[in-house]
């Protein structure tokens, strides 16, 4: 995510096209919305929702940028909800020291009106795509994957195709959306697997804290995905989201080891 401060008059170059927008309903637009449903999911991850002034249509995997009164600049957050026309957008945010928005956000901020611009992003999935899915996410990067997997499930994709989700967190305490992921696995009837990779836990046994149907593994999530997916990379679309080192590691694995074509790898770089 590039952000800058103009120190004087500047010329702004506006691109002549908007990539990936196939119909006018999905063009990004300026909206406003009220914060709601703010609550902690783990020690450093919160969830929040925004009730928009009017409905928007977006593709699963997309994000919006938010402007908060009193904070400079826009911040980008991926929608958790599956794609549909909706007036409520759900998000997750990692609380980071010095992180303007995440430090500002608290339960008492409910009702605050924010400026919203979107939807944006090209790491999207559409139901007409006839490929198996693999999602590799670190921390709050799982947000867009929830959107994609929910949408794939509701459109019957897992009746014909596989989906494999790899969710990297540091420790057992850092897992969130476990119940939601378990419900997705259950509803997909064998077409979907979810593996939680702990980068700072040594146990590789099935984890009692993770609900049924979710596998546990030890190690960095992109390495776990590389090992578990070996030999199963054919006809796949890969989605990647998370901290920059994880995204970089996942891209290297997907290109150099899995040998996926670049056209089958989707991610949005926020750095």
């Amino acid at each position: 995510m590039c952000q800058g401060v103009a120190l004087g008059d500047c010329e702004v170059l506006v691109p002549s096209r908007i990539d990936g927008v196939s119909d006018t309903a999905r063009e990004p637009q300026y909206l406003t919305g009220d914060l709601s449903e703010i609550r902690p999911l783990t020690r450093d991850v919160d969830t929040f929702s925004i009730d928009l002034d009017r409905p928007v249509t977006f593709d699963s995997g997309q994000f919006v940028v938010l402007a908060v009164p009193g904070l400079n600049g826009y911040r980008a957050y991926s929608m958790v909800n599956g794609a549909a026309e909706t007036s409520r957008l759900d998000f997750v945010v990692k609380r980071t020291p010095g992180g303007g928005f995440s430090e500002w956000l608290g339960v008492d901020r409910a009702g605050t009106t924010l400026d919203v611009f979107g939807p944006l992003g090209r790491a999207t999935w559409r139901p007409e795509e006839e490929k198996d899915l693999v999602c590799i996410a670190g921390g709050s990067g799982i947000a867009g994957m929830m959107s994609i997997v929910s949408h794939a499930l509701s459109s019957g994709h897992f009746e014909r195709h596989r989906g494999d989700v790899f969710f990297g967190v540091r420790t057992r305490e850092d897992v969130f959306f476990a119940d939601e992921l378990a419900r997705l696995v259950d509803a997909a009837g064998g077409g979907l697997s979810v593996t939680v990779a702990y980068s700072e836990e040594s146990s590789t046994v099935r984890d009692p804290d993770v609900p049924g149907g979710i596998r546990a593994a030890h190690g960095f999530v992109h390495l776990v995905a590389g090992e578990r997916m070996a030999g199963a990379w054919g006809n796949r679309t890969a989605f990647v989201a998370g901290p920059p080192p994880m995204v970089d590691g996942a891209l290297r694995m997907l290109i150099a080891e899995a040998r996926l074509p670049a056209s089958d790898i989707r991610y949005d770089k926020f750095t």
Binding site: R252, I255, A256, A262, K269
Partner: peptide, 25 residues
């Protein structure tokens, strides 16, 4: 990122053949 003869730049996933210099992808 090197994979066989193909160079990929991870920023935008553009690719080239490192022998011929031709863009691919």
């Amino acid at each position: 990122i090197c994979a066989g003869l193909i160079l990929t730049c991870s920023k935008h996933l553009h690719q080239w053949n490192m022998r011929t210099g031709e863009p691919t992808g």
